[in-house]
């Protein structure tokens, strides 16, 4: 009887060990994009909506909302960025959580900023593939609205800085411009053109409490700003 119990115990332990080893040896890439998003990303990103409805929710937000990612991001950019993520908003998602008073002005407190996790190529492709299916707010997108065109960098900067004052919050090259908003010199590589048009037209429709003014960019200037972002994206700032 005792011998049988010992055999059962050893068998059970072995089976348990084998099961555990099997789980650990399953390559991470076997996870679907949805698995990774739910396990690794949902702590900081809103995958289901709705957008923050209060300022408190805006201030607590840690990463961009992803429930309309399929209308927002370029898939190829997502796949590259997720493998080697670099900060897009110098002062974090809500700058107010990441600044402190300095001698001359408020400054970013780097100790409060967390690096974004990097994933493998296979995981990046899986995540990007799933994100492309997140198509909330499609009614705000007018497919094919943006028609490629040209604007000189100098004219684009004139519009962006002197005419509309956008430089106050956005960088147009590394180290030049405001820090509370996302950099725009990578915007054309990151974002789908029709999303850019829609978002600039009415940020509030995408993100009701966002700290970017709505209804500010004139309709006839929307494409010019998008042209400018394309021109910036072709510059080599390295």
């Amino acid at each position: 009887m005792l011998l049988m119990n010992i055999i059962r115990l050893i068998t059970g332990l072995t089976a348990g060990y084998l099961a555990t080893a099997l789980l650990l040896s399953v390559p991470a890439s076997a996870d679907s994009g949805l698995d990774i998003l739910e396990k690794k990303c949902s702590g900081c990103h809103n995958l289901t909506g709705p957008s923050p409805q209060t300022l408190e929710e805006v201030q607590q937000r840690k990463g961009p909302d992803l429930f309309y990612a399929g209308n927002k991001y370029r898939k190829e950019w997502l796949e590259e960025w997720l493998q080697e993520p670099e900060r897009i908003r110098p002062a974090g998602m809500y700058y107010g959580k990441h600044i402190k008073a300095g001698d001359e002005q408020d400054v970013i407190d780097p100790s409060t900023l967390e690096a974004h996790m990097a994933v493998s190529e296979e995981q990046a492709e899986a995540i990007a593939g799933t994100l492309m299916t997140y198509k909330a707010k499609s009614d705000l997108i007018s497919a094919g609205e943006y028609q490629p065109g040209h604007i000189s960098l100098s004219m684009g900067e004139l519009m962006f800085d002197k005419f509309r004052g956008c430089l106050a919050c956005h960088q147009i090259e590394p180290g030049y411009g405001g820090l509370s908003g996302p950099e725009v010199y990578t915007a054309a590589k990151r974002l789908q053109d029709d999303y850019l048009m829609s978002y600039m037209r009415n940020p509030k429709a995408w993100d009701p409490k966002v700290f970017m003014p709505s209804g500010y960019i004139r309709e006839k200037d929307l494409a010019k700003f998008a042209h400018y972002f394309h021109a910036l994206s072709e510059e080599d700032f390295e």
């Binding site: 700058y95 107010g96 008073a101 408020d106 030049y176 509370s180 700290f211």
Partner: peptide, 21 residues
């Protein structure tokens, strides 16, 4: 805090995180 700090500063003194350029 949400809309104005970015330029007017967390102390309201016009020294926000964005002002350098």
């Amino acid at each position: 805090q949400t809309y104005c700090w970015q330029c007017h500063g967390m102390n309201g003194d016009g020294k926000g995180v964005n002002i350098r350029d």
